[in-house]
Amino acid sequence: MAVLRKPSPLRVAGKYGALAFYVAFALFPLYWLLKIALTPDQLIYSEGTKLWPGAATLENFRIVLFQSDFLAYFRNSVFVSLTTAAATTLIAAGAGYAFSRFHFRGKRALVAVMLVTQMFPLLMIIAPIYKIVAAIGLLNSLTSLIIVYTAFNIPFATFLMQSFFDGIPKDLEEAAMMDGCTRFQALRKVIVPLTLPGLGATLGFVFTAAWSELLFALMLINSNDTMTFPVGLLTFVSKFSVDWGQMMAAGVLALVPSCLFFVFIQRYLVQGLTSGAVKG
């Protein structure tokens, strides 16, 4: 029998060193964001690329929060992203379930069409989308963004949800139906609880996509009231200068909901929930 030997300290150190390097590499831009947000305006250019600012201030945050429209942008973004995430996930879950469990005519065609929609670069269709939105009078409204984002995220989210449903044995809902459930009850009591990780992942994915979307927001929204946060960030760029400090402070604040959201859904992302259902 092989004896499990303690790995040499050198190897352990090397492993953690590599991990540390990777983490540092991945997080450096975030650090820079935070650093500049905290650096007083007058030091930004004079200190250049110094790793540690000579002085720190919360002034940028104060200005962003109380003297700019940032809070309004922020509110708009939260509203658009949450609604998009909820609507998309709901529709994608329904469609994914149908794709996973039912055979119906036109299923293959439908899948093909959904794949085709994913093939075009967004830039190509931005003009027609603009015309359509203008024609139904939804320019400058958050609704237009929600509709467009939902439409664009549904195909991928559907495939994602389908793969989660595919991972749940059909026997489970059949057992539930034998136990006295209608198909819908079986779905609600047995399948949905097991799909929570999938729902969490889909929500997170769509939320982040909508939260950071710039192109459509830029095209479809002009008025200050309905600007989302990525567009709002651009207002820190004026004709003659860029307010780096404030822009970065806004950026830091923008990270907050994404982080909160993932902390919240993180517990649903735990894998292995279906283990033990069928023979293991």
């Binding site: 044995p169 489970l172 057992a175 047995v190 929930l273 283990s275 259902a277 023979k279």
Partner: peptide
Amino acid sequence: PRDRDIAMVFQSYALYPH
């Protein structure tokens, strides 16, 4: 199925994992 009053034991057992 639910109105037939028949119980079934599956080869895979099909226990509800949660």
